[in-house]
Amino acid sequence: MSSILALKAVSKTFSDFWLRPTVKAVDALDLEVRKGEVFALLGPNGSGKSTTIKMILGLIEPTAGEISLFGMKPSCIEARRRLGYLPELSYLHPFLTARETLSYYAGLCSLDRKTASSRIDELLEMTDLAAAASRPVGTFSKGMARRVALASALIGKPEFLILDEPTSGLDPVSTDEVKTLVKTLAADGMTILMTSHLLADAGDVSNRVMILDHGRCAAEGDVAGIKGSLEEYFLSKISQRREFKVAPFLTGGAA
């Protein structure tokens, strides 16, 4: 299978105003996503998942290393044309209706009006939003907003879809719907990179998994193959969990 995305020894160090390094979010990361597979980046909060995604999207530049997206730099327009992205939160324009939101992103993808119109209808149907298409998205529930965001990511018919915590904040039914959708898209040949901190989500839909910890690869492989490593990793994390010391005034102690 040919490679869609390749990261070679990619690092990202954030600096303060005086350019003094503050946090090393990603540390010498190697990653490859092959055509047609569903690849999951797993890790706890602060493990570097979102930073990695932003570098892949060309929103931030890596401090070191190389990123190749469709054999091009992520900032290349042609690479972005073949990409779809669902962020961790929906970030929709609240004053636009669902249809206008999709029409806006169709315009950004330079789709002609006829193609855009038919694709918008299909996506509204697919995400069960046809009845609410003329309502401002600012009035939508979180689940509905998430579906609009997902439809926006798919409007340009991308070859490669990046889903940043796609089930974040969704109820079990909506989570299951998203997983089913991911499986359907994968079955149609779409390459998908998703991030999650839930092993269950990633395990259900992905072919391969990488666990990130402090910006480094802790384990990588197919779900069945590294299940032992995964359990060991999460058990070790549980054993290292933080113990919060409850402030005395909350329990009636001295202030």
Partner: peptide, 12 residues
């Protein structure tokens, strides 16, 4: 508000 990134990841 992080909306800008959704525009910047498009072919624009």
């Amino acid at each position: 508000e992080k909306r800008l990134q959704l525009t910047l990841v498009r072919p624009v």
